[in-house]
């Protein structure tokens, strides 16, 4: 059963001369209880993709140009703004990278968490605050009853992220969009937050779209993964398949640039070059200028996703060679 079905999503930004696509042809399916990783470097369009799902575009110049996002037999891209507001926070919630700036400083954490309940379900403030205590306990904040009168600035970064998760989960959404939820946190706290997300998934069947640039996070938490580059899907499939048997040179490059203990002291491999600016995308495959497998065809025509294995697709014409050739 599919909970969320994204097909051909394309988000454009208007520039003075023309529209450039930050996300182009994104498709994936999300099942209940699944954690899907959306991976890519900075500027690969993963955050824009994530926000596009809830139509929370970062600027007035951005628009969703094509694609459907089916959720409970409705296309979210075609709902009115008022209908969309009911979906946001209630069916699909979102958490962000920087918890410090995403929590309104003049609200106590109790009120911040209670507010979605009051707004979406018309609960009384008293009942909602009672529930807030419960939610704070669920996200692992010690002495929750004593914390609800405190302000966000009185919490540490990891605790703020827990507060944001509690607020997002207040209405028991079916899907959580997590936009780099651990990037701003230090490593030990990062692990705690990821464990919390896994734990919530196991207990409530929450489906999570996890946006990250950290392959290690994907390996630890995600069931499936979508690798984005310059707004296009390069490769997607089960985490195990994609990470152990990558069928795209870009995924290979990302994996090769992970530091390992074996290569201690050696220079860290990296993908040469930089991602192209969106208004000057290369013809053909967007990755070809940085790709050591590139052939003439890659420079000429766009490469479409091709199924390479059960539930595993790659947008590389030479995926067989990529798989065979060693690092």
């Amino acid at each position: 059963m599919t909970l969320l079905d994204v097909a051909g999503l394309r988000t454009e930004f208007a520039t003075p001369t023309r529209a450039v696509a930050a996300v182009d042809g994104l498709s994936f399916q999300l099942r209940p209880g699944e954690i899907l990783g959306l991976v890519g470097e900075s500027g690969s369009g993963k955050t824009v993709a994530c926000r596009s799902l809830l139509r929370l575009l970062p600027s007035r110049r951005a628009r969703i140009a094509a694609g459907t996002v089916m959720f409970e037999n409705r296309d979210l891209m075609r709902l009115s703004e008022a209908e969309m507001r009911v979906v946001r926070g209630r069916d699909i919630a979102m958490i962000f990278q920087n918890p410090a700036s995403h929590l309104d400083p003049v609200f106590t954490v109790g009120d911040l968490i209670a507010e979605p309940l009051i707004w979406h379900f018309g609960e009384s403030r008293r009942a909602a605050r009672k529930r807030a205590v419960e939610l704070l306990r669920q996200v692992g904040i010690p002495d929750p009853a004593g914390q609800i009168e405190r302000y966000p600035h009185q919490f540490s970064g990891g605790m703020k992220q827990r507060v944001m998760i509690a607020a997002a989960l207040a209405c028991e959404p079916k899907i959580l969009l997590a936009d780099e939820p651990t990037t701003a946190l230090d490593v030990t706290v990062q692990a705690q937050i990821l464990r919390l997300l896994l734990d919530l998934r196991d207990r409530t069947g929450l489906a999570i779209v996890l946006v990250t640039h950290d392959i290690g996070v994907v390996a630890e938490t995600c069931d499936s993964v979508v690798v984005l580059y310059s707004g296009r899907v390069m490769e997607c499939g089960g985490t195990q398949d994609v990470l152990t048997r990558p069928r795209h040179p870009y995924t290979r490059g990302l994996l090769d640039s992970l530091p390992t203990t074996a290569a201690r002291g050696a220079e860290l491999p990296s993908i040469s070059g930089y991602p192209p600016p969106l208004d000057r995308l290369p013809q053909g495959c967007r990755f070809h200028p940085r790709c050591r497998f590139a052939i003439d065809r890659c420079r000429r025509e766009p490469i479409e996703l091709e199924t390479v294995d059960d539930g595993h697709a790659s947008a590389c014409v030479r995926w067989r060679e990529v798989m065979e050739v060693g690092p």
Binding site: L54, L56, P58, M84, R85, V86, V87, R88, G89, R90, A93, M94, F96, N98, S101, H102, L103, D104, P105, E115, P116, W119, H120, M164, A167, A168
Partner: peptide, 14 residues
């Protein structure tokens, strides 16, 4: 342009 305003929208507030 503040992030928490985006967070309000993400929670579906009017």
């Amino acid at each position: 342009e503040q992030d928490y305003v985006m967070a309000c929208r993400a929670l579906g507030f009017g």
